[in-house]
Amino acid sequence: MSTEESRKTIIRIRNLSFKYKNAEKNVLDTINFDVKEGEFVLITGPSGSGKSTLARILTGLIPNSYPGDLSGEISIMSFDPRRNKIYEIAQNVGLVLQNPENQLFALTVEDDIAFGPENLGLERKEIKERVEWSLSVVDLQKERHKAPFELSGGLQQKVAIAAVLAMKPKILILDEPTSYLDTLSAIKFAYFLNELKRELNLTIILIEQKIDLFFKFLSRIVVMNEGKILIDDEPDVVMNFCIRNKIPINIPLQLLIIRTLGETYDGKKLYDYQVDDYKMLFEKIINDR
């Protein structure tokens, strides 16, 4: 395992600004953002802050499908969306959108997974291999002949991921994937995503509001607001910053409890505490009042 320092930087963005055509002001404003190979980065921030727009740039949808003024230095595994087409980038960076319903086209799971490789004009044998591989990675072999939209929300989300993985990307971006899942499915999804990352050596960029579900897996958190990056650092540093500056995002309650008691806390140990430990801490807060 290479250390954080020696890992390769695979996304490098400098002074990126973007304005949608016909819009009045920039939705992204002089953004600097790096991602190293193998990182698990969570991007959060109020809605409208530009998170999805950033994902569109990282996959080439901007400016290829959404015109506008795009400036700054961009290198996504040495691609630049202003020079490269979406399908070129798509074989390196995959994007899973929020609503699975709109990204599943075929009537069976396996055909849906094959759709991307078919578009790439791959050999039949290669497509078959990719379909089998994707199905096994997300553990959907049993559902392969079912219609994707008859599956539960959690499984649909997995099909959408399998379909993107069949393009063999090295970076996987997910845009608010848990917003329509129930609590249990969302918790399972967090573990699934972390396993997937480890198994495939993926780099993951996750746009998400439910920070606490993913907190312990993250290398970094990026907080955006009104088109700017407010802070981009290790999870505990970011959370402390957000608490201090009253940034309106979902701070895990565990952190709030510890902060209230004024204890310095060690981010890595946060999840070593059990619920009962927090119960004791919380009761201390109640008694202090």
């Binding site: 129930d182 609590t183 249990l184 918790i187 606490d212 895990p252 309650l253 565990q254 619920v275 009962d276 927090y278 119960k279 919380f282 009761e283 109640i286």
Partner: peptide
């Protein structure tokens, strides 16, 4: 497995059932 606790709900659940603190207050 019908419902899942979040951290918050499991904390509240423990505090009110084990320590007898009023729910609204929690």
């Amino acid at each position: 497995g019908i419902l899942a606790h979040t951290f918050t709900s499991s904390l509240i659940s423990r505090v009110i059932s084990q320590s007898n603190v009023d729910f609204q207050k929690v």
